[in-house]
Simulated assay, not measured.
Amino acid sequence: MTNDSAARAARLAAEPLRPAGPRPGFLTGTLQSIRDVLAHRELLGLLVRRELKARYKDSVLGFFWSLAKPFAMLLVYYVAIGKFLGAEQIPGRPGGVPQFAIFIFTGLTAWQLFSDIVVGCTGSVVANAGLIKKVYVPREVYPLSVVGAALFNFGIQLTILVGATVAVGQFPTGFRWLYFLLALAVLITFSTALGLFLAAVNVYLRDVQYLIEIMIMILLWASPIVYAWKFVDNALDGPLQSLYLANPMTQVVLGFQRAFWVAGDGEPFPANLGESLLISLGISVLLLWLSQRVFARLQSNFAQEL
């Protein structure tokens, strides 16, 4: 053994033993988990890059495919609902949704980020079973890497959306961006909370990842993405309307529309949307905290279950 090797071995032997795994305690455990993730931020960055590269490996068009699904959905909904069913507002014809293409792409942009985070996080721990069995790192880095990759794809779609508003001469300005920032904060926090919880549960019950894909498809229609809020306002009132608005993603989609759908300024929106988003953000932060503690409690047996 060389002198350098012997010195490194001696330094390693002198290091105190540290427990591997989540720390007990609802508050202290959370703080320690945050410190552990921050200590592995370089690994998290590598996992995000690996997630992006693996998704488009051997693909000729590369990141174009991150736009293919929302563009395909936009085309289908725009033609089938906007044109064939007459949802798009046409001069001389009352009713309809003004600038239907911008309206629907705004909702799809928000929904695609939510779907990518929740579905991707749900299967993230199982997908990294090989790494989890070999070495200990904070298990949260695996679902968080999915969040990072989803945000990258969201940035591409958002650029297209902003470019479309410029093309039609309706670029959002002023207070509209406050709605966007608040809605985006709710979206990221709420979807990450769901993703962490489902990622842990999916290790023990693999049916979860298939159930979530079906639920995402169903819940798409529980938010005003392909239809405007005015139709909900006319169809529901009282407790039913309050229940509809209790869905955080409904508020997020409406917040995105208030930001980017300039042609909808004359359209009705729920009263006190900004206050509702603030309340949802507070609840989402609490859910994220609780989800992380559930994840921390369940991760101790991940390697054995995988």
Rank of each mutant, 00 (worst) to 15 (best):
R206N: 14
K83E: 12
F100Y: 13
V226G: 07
M73L: 15
K134Q: 15
D207Y: 04
Q257I: 00
Y179M: 13
L27S: 10
V166Y: 14
Q251W: 00
A6E: 12
F295N: 03
G169P: 05
G21M: 08
A54G: 11
N234S: 15
D116K: 02
A199K: 08
V262Y: 07
V294W: 02
N234F: 05
E42Q: 14
L67V: 11
A9R: 11
Q170P: 07
A235F: 04
R18K: 13
A271D: 14
P98V: 01
W65M: 06
R8G: 11
A199L: 05
C121W: 00
I160H: 02
R49N: 13
G169N: 06
A193C: 05
M73F: 11
A183R: 02
L220D: 05
V76L: 08
L27M: 14
A20S: 13
F260G: 01
L277A: 03
Q299Y: 07
D207F: 04
A303K: 03
K134I: 08
V141D: 00
R35S: 12
F154I: 04
G282P: 04
P16Y: 03
D58T: 10
L298T: 06
A13R: 12
F71I: 15
Q299F: 10
G169H: 06
D265P: 04
Y227F: 15
